[in-house]
Write a protein that binds this DNA or RNA. Structure first.
Lengths: 153, 153
DNA sequence: TTTAATAGTTCACTAGTTTAACTATTTATG
DNA sequence: CATAAATAGTTAAACTAGTGAACTATTAAA
């Protein structure tokens, strides 16, 4: 691959990923309950998957400082979507879980998001989309590895 | 494609795109001048491409309200990276352009970003990445069309 | 010539983020 | 054991980014 086509690919990639982040994000937002942001939804999504987690874990997964997690968790807590409970053996630790209201809200939203994203996925041939996902995941692994190398420096 | 594999694809897609947005964003941020954010960089990027633009145009392209553009433009203006000039025929209109300092900063940054993204691109076979980009662009067009359909409702 | 529309700004408010200082608790060390 | 160091989480100040509504100035339309 010559330099010129790499430059073109880079240009094209940055343009598409930016566009999808913006427009796709706004479509996802359209599926959420009125007063929920995309960030808050992704937080619920992670908590729904792992069932129980801590602030420290969320800070690592979302790659932000713990104080940012405290803020977003407070907002979700005020909405009654999550609950906190202290570990009785190590009283520094606070476990975070979805409330029943939180679970129901997430499930409901998730169904709408599946429909939305599914409506795009269905427009592709299965072989095409599977090849796409393989490359996409490879890229993801490269980025993660590069990030970890940077941290290790 | 059955329902189950669509659900899995949706799950997988959401997970990867979220991860790449987070980690990739943080790698890009690492290439920027100290006091520049990713949003500010994308703004410079667009202005560098089109050379001259207006707030209204930026609001459409970035899909935010004009007041958000005023705020970000003010920040870039304070850093001396962009300049404003009124249209003499229609004095409501303000044209925005990069200053020389802004252009140099962007070029410098862009070179670093090309190196970074290029280092990933180079790890793929050309055929693989070209197929990926075709699918990625198709997805982008679907999302844009879906967004415009929503607006038209 | 009033009335509409357009371009952009300002202001108050909210979300998300970082940094630094802090509390409470647990673990290590001398 | 007692003090020091590490860990989990919170708080507060400062910043960026976004929305919505009210506003100014200017141009276009009735």
């Amino acid at each position: 691959m010559d330099e010129k086509s790499i430059k073109e690919l880079v240009d094209q990639y940055l343009h598409i990923s930016f566009s999808i982040e913006r427009c796709g994000g706004s479509l996802i937002k359209g599926q959420l309950a009125e007063d929920l942001t995309n960030d808050q939804h992704y937080m619920l999504r992670y908590m729904n998957k792992v069932e129980v987690c801590t602030s420290t874990e969320l800070a690592e997964v979302f790659d932000v400082k713990k104080s940012a997690i405290t803020a977003i968790i407070n907002r979700l807590w005020k909405k009654g979507l999550i609950q906190r409970s202290r570990d009785e053996n190590d009283r520094r630790v606070v476990y975070l879980t979805l409330t029943n209201v939180g679970k129901e809200l997430f499930d409901e939203t998730e169904r709408r998001i599946y429909e939305l994203v599914g409506s795009f996925v269905k427009q592709f041939e299965q072989t095409e989309i599977e090849a796409f996902m393989r490359t996409y995941e490879k890229l993801n692994q490269m980025i993660i590895a590069s990030k970890e190398a940077k941290v290790g420096e």
